[in-house]
């Protein structure tokens, strides 16, 4: 079953290489923008469950602030040896009203 969350935040509220944490259906989700595109991932590193809110985004990779694991925002796949577990990703799009629209599984 798919849950959708409309009117999350205005798309213009988030700039490139920025993250915004939101709670949807009790889940802590991190909205990210990289190279002009929007991404949504679980706001929890798969290495040690650290929050990724202050993670740094470069070239479509989000780096965990704790030990630096980098996740590809497009696929959730991690780089390096610290974890092999991908970050869960969610489809996100800009709705007609200019707000971000998120789909949860």
């Amino acid at each position: 079953m798919t849950t959708t969350a409309d009117s999350l935040i205005p798309a213009t509220d988030i700039t490139d290489n920025q993250t915004v944490a939101v709670t949807v259906e009790g889940k802590n989700i991190l909205i990210c923008k990289a190279n002009g595109d929007y991404y949504a991932v679980d706001n929890q590193c798969t290495h040690q469950r650290a929050e990724l809110t202050n993670g740094r985004i470069r070239n479509c990779y989000l780096a965990c602030p704790l030990h630096g694991v980098r996740f590809d925002l497009r696929t959730g796949m991690p780089k390096g040896e610290l974890t092999r577990v991908p970050l869960k990703t969610y489809p996100v799009s800009v709705a007609e009203d200019g707000n971000l629209h998120l789909e949860l599984d």
Binding site: R58, Y61, A63, G68, R70
Partner: peptide, 14 residues
């Protein structure tokens, strides 16, 4: 200390 390329404000051994 670091497993892969990236950014760090300090190097914390995992």
């Amino acid at each position: 200390l670091r497993d892969c390329d990236g950014h760090a404000d300090e190097f914390v051994c995992p």
